[in-house]
Design a protein around this nucleic acid. Structure first.
Lengths: 107, 107
DNA sequence: ACAACATATGATTCTAGCTTCATATGATAT
DNA sequence: ATATCATATGAAGCTAGAATCATATGTTGT
């Protein structure tokens, strides 16, 4: 455990919008505008999220024409999501302190 | 990915105090007052952190006399910390956006 | 070169949740 | 039973960082 790298690691991911982006990218690469459309939210918001996720190595991007295609970094994200899924299954009741809010429904 | 369990998962852990607690507990079980002394901070603060960590299954507790001994839940914490260590090693520069702040030095 | 589309970045406002203070609960010993 | 130590809980204020708005940069086609 070094410095506050750990805090940054978790802080970046503790966010509805970034997690929604990750959820979508887990099914395959997408451009910024595709993410906007699918999540029904502003382009700048998505871009801010993507910049953070990229800076900290959770996603990668690649230019294709005037689009920029984003994808998950599988090395970290696949085992991480698997680990959390297992934990969440056990502590769902507690972890899911959502008041009627469901996955993908951001406010 | 279900509901906002994921967000809760990360949000809980994205905190200096809780991470310091986890860091200490990773070396062995401790009581609340021992944690307070080692981290040089208030009892209520530590207790609040411990309650959250416990609720979400990151630590367990056991009564011993008038003390309460806390320990990490190894099933989730050991692989989680290992995974992050590997990632942090790679993205340390970015993740560690600390301005002179070092591990265990909370403000 | 310019227009149109796609994405990134800066700055400000706003809000979730951490810290703190005060108090409650629980356990032991005398 | 009461005093003391150990821990938990409630409520309120404060602060980091997300959302938003405005604008800049980048790319392609004509």
């Amino acid at each position: 455990m070094i410095c506050n790298s750990y805090k940054s690691f978790f802080k970046i991911l503790a966010d509805d919008c970034k997690l929604n982006v990750i959820n979508l990218l887990s099914k395959g690469p997408l451009t910024v505008s595709e993410l906007c459309k699918k999540l029904g939210c502003e382009q700048s918001r998505i871009s801010h999220c993507l910049q953070a996720l990229k800076k900290f190595g959770f996603v990668a991007s690649q230019v294709r024409g005037k689009h920029r295609i984003y994808s998950l970094e599988p090395k970290i994200m696949i085992p991480l999501l698997k680990l959390i899924d297992e934990h969440v299954e056990k502590y769902h009741r507690n972890l899911c302190n959502c008041k009627g809010v469901r996955w993908r429904e951001m406010k």
